[in-house]
Design a protein around this nucleic acid. Sequence first.
DNA 1: ATGCCTGCAAAATATTTGCATGTAA
DNA 2: TTACATGCAAATATTTTGCAGGCAT
Lengths: 134, 134
Amino acid sequence: MACITNKLRLAGLRPTRQRVALGSILFGSGDRHVSAEMLHAEALAAGEQVSLATVYNTLHQFTEAGLLRELAIDGSKAFFDTNTSNHNHFYVENDGSLLDIPTGSIRVDGLPEPPKGLKISHIDVVVRLVPDDR
Amino acid sequence: MACITNKLRLAGLRPTRQRVALGSILFGSGDRHVSAEMLHAEALAAGEQVSLATVYNTLHQFTEAGLLRELAIDGSKAFFDTNTSNHNHFYVENDGSLLDIPTGSIRVDGLPEPPKGLKISHIDVVVRLVPDDR
DNA sequence: ATGCCTGCAAAATATTTGCATGTAA
DNA sequence: TTACATGCAAATATTTTGCAGGCAT
C-alpha cells in the first residue's frame, strides 16, 4: 500500500484515496488488462466508493504518467494494460479475453520508412484468435 | 453503380437504396478508411438521406459479408477499411489519419503457438507515428 | 487564506436495439 | 398476401467536461 503511494508520488500524482484504491487494484497483483467498467466494478466490489468518471480520468492520468498503456483492441472499448513494457497480445475474439505475448518473442521485419517528418513511436501487434474447430 | 448492386447481391445483401448509396461512396474510389460518422457526413453531403444508425448497421453488415474490415485503432472509435486484403497501417497520432502499409512489406516472426483449441484468425499491426522533432 | 488540483454530476459522444414499415416472392 | 428483411427512433453504452469543493502551501 505504501508502495502504491510512493509509486504515485514518483509519477507526479497526488496519492488521493481514489487513486490509491484504484492503483492497489491495478498494480497489486501481476499484470492485468482492464477496461474502465471492469475496474469500476472491482473497486465497488472492494467497497471503495468511486464514480465511473473518476475511473476514466484516473486511467488516463496513469497512462500519461507512464504507469499504464492503453490498448486498442476492439473498436468500441478501451483497454488498459498494467504491463508497460514493449510486448504484444493475443485477443480471443469469442470471449474478449487478452493474453500477453512475452516481450521479444515477436519480431516485425520489412517496415517501410515512415513519411517525412514523422517517426515511429510504437508498434502494436494484436494476434486475433478464434476456436480451432477440429 | 450496377456493379455495386451486383457486389451487394453476391455478398447476400439486398441492394436497398441506402446500401447502394453507402456502397457507392465506400467502393467507388480506391481504398478508404472511414468512421461511421465520416461516412454519414459524406452521404448527407451527397444528398442521400440516411440515418446514422443505418450507417452503423450497414457498416457492420458489410463487415460480416466480408466487404469491409473493421480496424481497432483508437480506444473509442471504430474505423472501417475498404481494403480487406491482409495489410497493415500507419497511424498518425497527431491528426488521427491512417495510411496503408502495402501487403507483404511487413513480416512478423517468432509468434508463439496459440493456446490449445484456438487458431490465429488474423494479425493486426499498427505502426503509430509521431512528429519527428529534429 | 489562496490557488491549483480532484472527483463527480451532467453533458457529450458513440453504438445498439426494437419495432413499424417496406419489399421480394 | 405473406413472411422476412430493413431502416430509423429511441435506448443504451461509453467517454469527456465543467465546476464545486478539497488539499497543500
